[in-house]
């Protein structure tokens, strides 16, 4: 049972391909144990979404993901009526034999992630991704859903969750979330991993890379984070980049190959300009010295 202790959960996460630190394991463990949503915050690319996927996989639960964006509304997040089917149904039926109750029944309902999670009979991990992108109105709505796991559809009535889904929310801190929402959640801040852990993660995620390349790539990215960049690379960039290096048959970092592949790590033109010539050579030398 992965949920009998923090150690067990930690090794189950590792088996699921996610290398957590003790803090994240504890936060996930407590959240699963006491049945409260967990809010994961951190810079982009530190593995917030991946953590939710790993939890779903180790629990054998279905992962339902709601990707938030500005303007997200109930018809995209909860449910929508299938209007085309409704109209066809009215036309196909004899005059006057269709009543409203039939028309707005569950046959004509399109289920979106939140409704799906509440209705599900099997265990579910509900990932509400990048909640900070959604509008504040949606946050208020979400608050209601998270507090009692029920959804009201005017034409049908209230649907209550048969089993409470495990909820993980992620936020990049584009804006501060409402206190009321935070009160409903446990909180964990994921920072950039320590160098040794990052090397381990890269080795795990890119098994084709040699141990030496993984260590050098992680050290190089760690060096980049020390610089004053518009967007310091996250763990996700280290992994992408190592994959690119492996695809090019790289055994060891050198200035030429780094220059060719830097686009996998740095996403702003200014940053690419800032990391050139001596800066780049210095970082490569530093990474190779490990």
């Amino acid at each position: 049972m992965p949920l009998s202790s923090i150690d067990r959960l930690e090794s189950a996460l590792t088996d699921a391909g996610y290398l957590p630190d003790r803090g994240l394991s504890t936060a996930l463990f407590v959240s699963l144990k006491i049945g409260k949503p967990l809010l994961l915050e951190g810079e982009a690319g530190v593995g917030k979404t991946e953590a939710a996927k790993a939890v779903a996989s180790l629990l054998g639960a279905r992962l339902i993901r709601l990707q938030c964006y500005e303007g997200l509304d109930v018809s995209q997040a909860v449910y929508e009526w299938n209007y085309a089917r409704q109209l066809l149904h009215i036309r196909a039926a004899q005059d006057g034999t269709v009543d409203e109750a039939e028309l707005f029944g569950s046959d004509f309902l399109i289920r979106r992630p939140l409704l799906e999670a509440v209705e599900s009979e099997e265990p579910v991990v509900l990932l509400i991704d990048e909640i900070d992108r959604a509008d504040e109105e949606f946050e208020a709505f979400l608050l209601e859903t998270l507090s009692d796991f029920q959804i009201t559809i005017p034409e049908i009535g209230t649907i209550t969750a048969k089993r409470q889904p495990h909820v993980i929310l992620t936020s990049n801190r584009m804006r501060e979330l409402h206190d009321a929402l935070k009160r409903r959640c446990l909180f964990h801040w994921i920072g950039h991993p320590a160098l040794d852990r990052e090397v381990e993660i890269v080795k795990m995620r890119v098994p084709e890379a040699s141990a030496r390349l993984a260590a050098q790539a992680a050290a190089f990215v760690a060096g980049l984070r020390e610089l004053d960049l518009a967007k310091p690379p996250g763990l996700a960039e280290t992994i992408d980049w190592t994959q690119a290096l492996v695809a090019l048959g790289t055994q060891e970092l050198d200035s030429a190959v780094v220059e060719q592949t830097l686009g996998a790590v740095l996403k702003y033109h200014e940053d690419v300009l800032a990391v050139r010539d001596e800066t780049l050579a210095g970082l490569v030398a530093q990474a190779r010295a490990r």
Partner: peptide
Amino acid sequence: AVELTRRDDVYWTLRSTLVSRR
């Protein structure tokens, strides 16, 4: 839910439950 034997587990448990912003 957690065992109280490891100090860092106590720390992380309290931190994830009592703190709400970075």
